[in-house]
């Protein structure tokens, strides 16, 4: 588990990116429902590390982030791509202790 930021650094429905010690990147989200999620930051469709900059919302009640590049939706809790179930992004475990967000390996 790597501490990446404080919970108070996050704003609802607005992701941030964090750099992990192995050089990989995670996109960390706080939803307006109050849950925290961490997904791989690389959008598999463009190869760009930008998933943290997508719009957060829901599809049919399922919380998702939508890639800012070509607009595919990824389920926040599973990383699965709803527009192409054969793809997805890794999900990182997250814990929040004393207001600090820690992210683990997928």
């Amino acid at each position: 588990m790597t501490p990446v930021c404080e919970l108070s650094d996050l704003r609802p429905d607005q992701g941030v990116a964090a750099l992990l010690p192995d050089g990989s990147q995670v996109a960390v989200f706080l939803t307006s429902a109050g849950t925290v999620h961490a997904l791989g930051n690389i959008d598999p469709f463009s190869g760009a590390a930008v998933l943290s900059r997508g719009i957060v919302g829901d599809r049919g009640g399922v919380p998702v982030v939508v890639s800012p590049v070509y607009k595919q939706a990824f389920e926040l809790s599973t990383g699965k791509c709803l527009d192409d179930p054969s793809t997805g992004v890794p999900v990182h475990p997250v814990v929040v202790t004393d207001g600090v967000i820690q992210v683990g390996s997928p």
Binding site: P12, G47, A48, V69
Partner: peptide
């Protein structure tokens, strides 16, 4: 405030996102 979270790709950073981010 909250408006920032509503903006589409390019408006979010007031610039056009390129293919490599």
């Amino acid at each position: 405030g909250e408006q920032a979270t509503l903006q589409d790709t390019n408006d979010r950073f007031l610039a056009n996102m390129q293919r490599n981010g």
